[in-house]
Every structure is written in C-alpha cells, then in structure tokens.
Design a protein around this nucleic acid. Structure first.
Lengths: 253, 253
DNA sequence: CGTGTCATTGATGGCTCTCAACTCGAGTGG
DNA sequence: CCACTCGAGTTGAGAGCCATCAATGACACG
C-alpha cells in the first residue's frame, strides 16, 4: 500500500550483476563493461499486483520484460474463439519476444501473483546489441529456444491424452523451478485449474479429475494450489506412456 | 535425371536481386550493396528430390535454408512418442530458425516434392548481420513471426474440432499460396493425409472423412491432392464456428 | 501385373467435454 | 460474530467427437 519509502535507493539503479537471476537472464555472459551498459538501459523494476496487466493484446509494443519474481500468464484472444492461455512466465524468463518487429503486442500478459519485472525498452536494446555481439547471440538463442518450446507444446497438444499433458506440464514446471534453485518436488501453482486447462487444451474439470487420479495413484499430492511430487518416476511414466495400446513409438528415419 | 548440363552458368552465382522470391525472402529491404554481400554468402541452390532430407534431427546445425521452390515438412521425434509433423515450408520461408544458437538441428526436414533451397551458412550470416542492422531486424522479425505462428497453432490444437482445424489449415495454405502469387482457390497438397493429420493432431482417417464432408457441403472440391476451394466463406464459417453450442466467445478483459 | 503406398469408408469403443450440483474458503457487511 | 456472496475447485452423469481397427479401392512403380 505505502509507496516503498526507504527501499528506493537500492533498486533505483538496477544492478544486473547483483541480481540473483543473473545466471539465467538475458545479459548472461556479457563482459563487465557491457553489463554496465546493460544496466543503463534497464528501467526501474516494476511491481505488479495479482491480476494486473503488464501488456494488453493490441497495445503498441515497446519493451521486453524480464520476470524478476512472481509469475505471469499470456493469453491470446482470436476472433471467433475464446481467449486461450499460451504461456506461463517464471522468474528469469522474457516476456514479449513474440512481438519483436511488430507494432502491437501479440497477447495480453497478466500477473498471476505479486510480481516484479525489469523493463527493457526494445529500441535501446537494439542500439546496445549493435555493439555487443554476445547480446545479439543471446537474443537469437532465447527466441529459438522459445520456438523449440512452442513446438514441444504443439506435439503435446496434438495427440496426447489428458494424463500425458498434465504429467508433462507438471514435470516441466518441476524442471523450471529446479533450475531456478527451488525445489523440484514441492511448489506452488500460481495459476488456476482453468488456466492450466486452457493452456493444455483441456476442460478445467478434466484437470481437476486427472490431478485427483494422479494423487490416488501416489504420484503426486495436491492440496489446493500446493503441489508435491511424491513419485517422479511414476509421473514420468505417466507422461510417456501411450494411450494404452502403447504400440512401439516409431522413431523411424 | 541428367545432371543439369548447361543450366549451371545461370545459377552458379546466385543473384538475390533477380530471384522471383526477392519480395518475400530474408534480404528484403537491403540496400543494393548490402544485397551484393548477401549474394556472396549464399551457397549454390541445392536440389532436393521428393523424400530427400535437408537436415536430420540431431545433426550439427550449420545453416539456415530458404525454400526457393517446392515444399518441405519438418518432423520432430520425441522420446517415447511417435514423430510428429511440426511445420510445412513453402517457397520464401526459412528453415532452421529453431536451431539458432544450438549445436544440433531440432527436427528433420524432408522434401515433399522436388525442391530447391538456398543455403545460408549461419556463421557467415552473423558476420554479415554485424554491419547490416536491417538484416538483424529481418531476422528478429522472421523469428517472432514464427513464434506467433506457433502460438496460433497451439490455439488451433487445443480445443478446436477436427472441422475447425482442417478448415483453418486449408485457409492458411490458401493465404500462403495467394501471397506468393499463386491461386488462393486452387492448389496442390504436396503433403499426404497422414502428414496433415500428424500436423493437426488428427488421425489420417479423420482428415479424409472431414475433407469428404467439406466436399459434400460444397465448400471445397478434392481430387486426390488437387484441392479447390469453391466457397471460401463457407470454409471460413467452418473454421470459426464453435462446437455447436457456440456460446459467446468471451473476449473479456 | 504384382506390390506397395496412399486414400477412402464403415463400425465400434473410449476419452473428454458439457451440464449440473455441491463444497470450501475468503471477503464483505450487518 | 454470523450470514451472505462470490469465485475456485471437486465430483457425478450423459453425450459426442474422434481414434482405432479393419477392409477395400486407387494409383504409381518396377
């Protein structure tokens, strides 16, 4: 509520080198002086409350954002369709890569809980990239990694059962939390069942039912949005196994 | 069959400025002398026969390719799953964006028919991009456009019926052919029903059935792989309409 | 003219959506 | 402190879409 009184001095000048996310963020691998330049273009960390929008679909695109803490979701509304969740963003991940080169934001991005983001005005980033080959490389890599991520998602959505989708989703979250130094076995689902369903192409009731079944089977324990993976191997089996008639997955050619 | 005897002199030195795809290709918007540099790094157009692989999943990544003629498909095999078609490439489109910054190719890319591709060795492209800001911008734009394309695909795959997927697919192809100067109403499907099914997350039998039904309804006419769109508005309606209980698509927020 | 691939068509079963009722907890106001 | 409201989540029953299995037809290739 109160407008952060004495906290300002510390965050007034963002310091990437001091950021705990440094190892996972965009400027990874930049030289010291390059990092200084990077600091110069970053805007003050921005606080978002739960439900607050970071960008709105169709609004002019100006900046990329790096999640510093909290989590967000991207939703895309297409004509004649209901809006769908297309992405969840965790700390260290970059929001807005899909709008580069466009005038408008491709989707709306909303905070799922209290969150902080660092703003990277894209025009300044481009100027900086002009003289920092490593930064260009990082950008390319981030984008192509996201392309691969989306393609895995497409594979998941086409022709996998609800069990497989949900198991893969949980394992993916587990891995992302793990690589951020958090527990891979116990974490908080900041998104609703409805969000998960929209993201995975399932009805929210199905999400609820499958989670309950996973719990019966002893693979996980869920209590509201608190999730514990009790048997990760069982979960991996659930993610991999085919519809029942697991006919040898043809990995031909 | 015969190894192109007298044709070589013309294609020996590729000339982007003369290429009929110039308006749709990567170097669009480059100045004349920049275009010259671009010509320098392009390798001889490469011919592919139907079924021949341009890249194989897991092989070292070295180059991007631009499709000059013909069409290709990308397939991605994931552990414990059957391989899936993730992309169809038409003339002017770039193959390999999802492997940038990686050591390995992300998926296999195979020619669906006789095809020509221009090779762009990535290291040389990077060097060139160093001094051509427009080229960097083009690359970013291509990648973010593909990100948006993938996200539309994800929306299509999650929660749309077979009819909607197939109608959207055909409309998408129509538009891509159209923007290449070909007829939007009559074109050749170089991919098999099985490929389409894999791409759309449907069984090949379903693809066949739905196409037959679209024909009954008078929206299209199919004869093998020759496709004619006879009523594009009907097709658009099929792509848009919801499962039957079209409850108002909530475009809230 | 066999052979294989691709495509079509039919019958059946199952996964998941939809509709609906209910529980639970938080926030609000009396 | 309690009743009320609202949203999120759970659970149940039925229907529908689509995958699967299977057989047949079309076509190219050698």
């Amino acid at each position: 509520m109160k407008p952060r009184p004495a906290q300002r001095p510390r965050s007034a000048v963002p310091r990437c080198e001091r950021c705990t996310l440094h190892a996972r963020c965009l400027p990874l691998g930049l030289e010291f002086d390059a990092l200084q330049s990077f600091d110069d273009i970053i805007r003050l960390p921005q606080a978002l409350k739960r439900g607050q929008a970071l960008m709105r679909q169709g609004a002019p695109f100006t900046s990329l954002y790096v999640v510093r803490s909290g989590s967000l979701k991207q939703t895309v509304a297409q004509p004649e369709q209901r809006a769908q969740v297309t992405h969840f963003y965790l700390p260290g991940e970059i929001v807005g890569l899909d709008a580069i080169g466009e005038e408008e934001c491709h989707g709306s991005v909303v905070a799922l809980e209290s969150a902080f983001v660092c703003e990277l005005p894209f025009t300044r980033l481009e100027v900086l990239a002009e003289r920092l080959p490593e930064l260009r490389g990082r950008l390319y890599r981030c984008m192509s990694r996201e392309l691969r991520r989306d393609q895995r998602m497409m594979c998941l959505l086409s022709g996998r059962t609800a069990d497989q989708r949900l198991a893969s989703f949980l394992l993916g979250l587990s891995e992302r939390f793990s690589s951020r130094g958090l527990s891979p076995y116990r974490f908080f689902l900041s998104m609703s069942r409805s969000d998960i369903g929209s993201y995975l192409g399932l009805a929210l009731e199905t999400v609820s039912r499958v989670l309950a079944r996973f719990q019966e089977q002893g693979a996980i324990a869920v209590a509201g949005r608190e999730l514990t993976i009790s048997d990760i191997e069982a979960l991996e089996a659930l993610a991999a196994e085919s519809t029942g008639a697991t006919r040898a997955a043809r990995l031909f050619d």
